[in-house]
């Protein structure tokens, strides 16, 4: 009797795991399908570019404040922490290199993507989820307007265009923040700060790779947000859950992708 109970319990756990796995894989497939449909129907978003511009305004321009302010603080903290360690080795002039490389290579693209997922990704998911709940998407289909071409594709391209711009701004503002702490506040030599940076930051290997990273993150974050919204159950609870999932999945995907991309990019 006890044995059969145990067996039933184990079976139930295994079934649950399998069910979840299949669900995940199904969602991955559905997401990939939406991605290809978006690419196919994205002609509309370039022909009627004002649709995309409007979305760039909502995803990019509205994210400017949070990105710039956090970049400033991240740069300042980097300079403070870096100086604290570097001065033990008598190489506090290398602080410019430290700040610039950490921002351009990693923190710029990654933190921007995380902020973007929280600020713009959730908004996209909630908006599309609510459009679905209030049956606006079905109404569009009734009027022979393809909701993917009209709603999804412009948001997708807006995200892809906005992300590298935001990441470049993040890096630049972060470096300025680091400069403000290192040079006027701590008293590192102004010339050494910039010249060491210029000697060690490579345009192709560091800056262009950072932009490539942010482009990939832009595709990933926007697509996840769009899919979660498009796939959300048309209830208040469904939309709220989809919004949460957007942040969680986007953040994890960005961090995992970052590792993969970095391992491709680093020349040993």
């Amino acid at each position: 009797m006890i044995k059969s109970n145990l067996l039933i319990g184990i079976t139930r756990i295994l079934t649950g795991i399998g069910h979840r796995m299949i669900e995940r894989i199904w969602r991955l497939g559905a997401g990939a399908r939406l991605f290809f449909l978006t690419i196919i129907y994205s002609g509309e978003s370039f022909k009627r570019f004002h649709l995309t511009l409007r979305e760039i305004y909502f995803t990019g321009v509205m994210s400017l404040l949070i990105v710039i302010v956090s970049a400033f603080f991240v740069g300042m903290v980097l300079a403070l922490q870096g100086y604290n360690t570097l001065q033990k080795y008598g190489s506090s002039e290398a602080i410019g290199v430290l700040v610039a490389l950490s921002l351009v290579r990693e923190l710029g693209p990654v933190v921007t993507a995380l902020l973007f997922a929280g600020r713009a990704g959730t908004a996209i998911t909630a908006e599309i989820g609510l459009m679905k709940t209030t049956e606006q998407l079905s109404a569009m289909e009734m009027m022979a307007v393809n909701p993917i071409a009209r709603v999804i594709a412009p948001r997708f391209w807006a995200g892809v265009i906005s992300m590298p711009i935001l990441a470049a701004l993040f890096s630049m503002v972060g470096i300025l923040g680091g400069y403000l702490v290192a040079v006027p506040l701590i008293g590192v030599d102004d010339g050494a700060f910039w010249s060491q940076m210029q000697a060690n930051v490579d345009f192709r290997l560091d800056i262009v790779n950072g932009v490539i990273k942010s482009l990939v993150f832009g595709v990933a974050c926007t697509m996840i947000a769009l899919f979660e919204g498009y796939d959300a159950p048309p209830t208040a609870e469904g939309v709220s859950r989809a919004t949460t999932r957007t942040v969680v999945i986007s953040s994890l995907t960005v961090l995992a992708l970052d590792f993969v991309l970095t391992s491709f990019m680093i020349v040993i």
């Binding site: 511009l53 590298p164 711009i165 935001l166 470049a168 701004l169 890096s171 210029q198 800056i207």
Partner: peptide, 24 residues
């Protein structure tokens, strides 16, 4: 349009700054 223009111009400026002032 104006705001998006400002946004894109800022991005270009940042990239240019990175290339010229930070990079080699």
């Amino acid at each position: 349009d104006l705001w998006v223009g400002v946004f894109v111009a800022l991005g270009m400026a940042a990239l240019l700054g990175l290339a010229m002032k930070v990079g080699n």
